Amino acid sequence: FKEKSRGVLREWYAHNPYPSPREKRELAEATGLTTTQVSNWFKNRRQRDR
């Protein structure tokens, strides 16, 4: 994950830790990652924050 991608994901996570499938697609396009990578990032981040 590039620093820029992580920044976008972290910013989004601060507002909404549970993005919808459509939001995940938009995030994937914005970061250049796949929707699966975006989903996993959020899942792992939520797990880490428990």
Rank of each mutant, 00 (worst) to 15 (best):
F1D: 12
F1C: 07
K2G: 10
K2R: 05
K2A: 07
E3P: 04
E3M: 13
E3N: 11
K4N: 14
S5A: 12
S5K: 09
S5M: 13
R6T: 13
R6S: 11
G7L: 15
V8W: 04
V8G: 03
L9W: 00
L9V: 02
L9P: 00
L9E: 01
L9Q: 01
L9A: 02
R10M: 12
E11H: 03
E11V: 00
Y13Q: 00
Y13E: 04
Y13S: 02
A14W: 06
A14I: 09
A14H: 09
A14R: 08
H15F: 07
H15A: 13
H15M: 11
N16H: 01
P17G: 05
P17E: 07
P17M: 12
P17L: 06
P17A: 12
Y18A: 10
Y18Q: 10
Y18R: 11
Y18P: 03
P19A: 03
P19M: 02
P19K: 01
P19Q: 00
S20T: 10
S20Y: 02
S20I: 00
S20V: 09
P21R: 09
P21F: 10
R22H: 15
E23N: 01
E23D: 10
E23M: 06
E23I: 00
K24F: 12
K24G: 10
K24I: 11
K24H: 09
K24L: 14
R25L: 14
R25E: 15
R25M: 13
E26V: 06
E26M: 04
E26C: 00
E26I: 01
L27A: 00
L27Y: 10
L27V: 09
L27P: 02
L27T: 01
A28C: 09
A28D: 04
A28L: 01
A28I: 03
A28Q: 00
E29Q: 06
E29T: 03
E29W: 03
E29G: 05
A30F: 05
A30S: 13
A30W: 06
T31Q: 04
T31E: 07
T31V: 08
T31H: 03
G32P: 02
G32K: 04
G32F: 03
G32Q: 09
G32H: 09
L33F: 08
L33W: 11
L33A: 03
T34L: 06
T34K: 14
T34V: 02
T34M: 06
T35K: 08
T36K: 15
T36G: 12
T36W: 07
T36M: 07
T36F: 05
T36S: 10
T36R: 14
Q37N: 06
Q37G: 06
V38W: 02
V38T: 03
V38D: 07
S39Y: 06
S39R: 11
S39A: 10
N40P: 00
N40D: 11
N40K: 15
W41M: 01
W41Y: 15
F42N: 02
F42W: 00
K43G: 07
K43Q: 02
K43E: 12
K43R: 11
K43L: 06
N44V: 05
R45K: 08
R45D: 04
R45Y: 03
R45H: 14
R45E: 15
Q47L: 11
Q47W: 15
R48P: 04
R48E: 14
R48H: 14
R48C: 14
R48K: 13
D49C: 02
D49K: 01
D49V: 02
R50Q: 10
R50G: 12
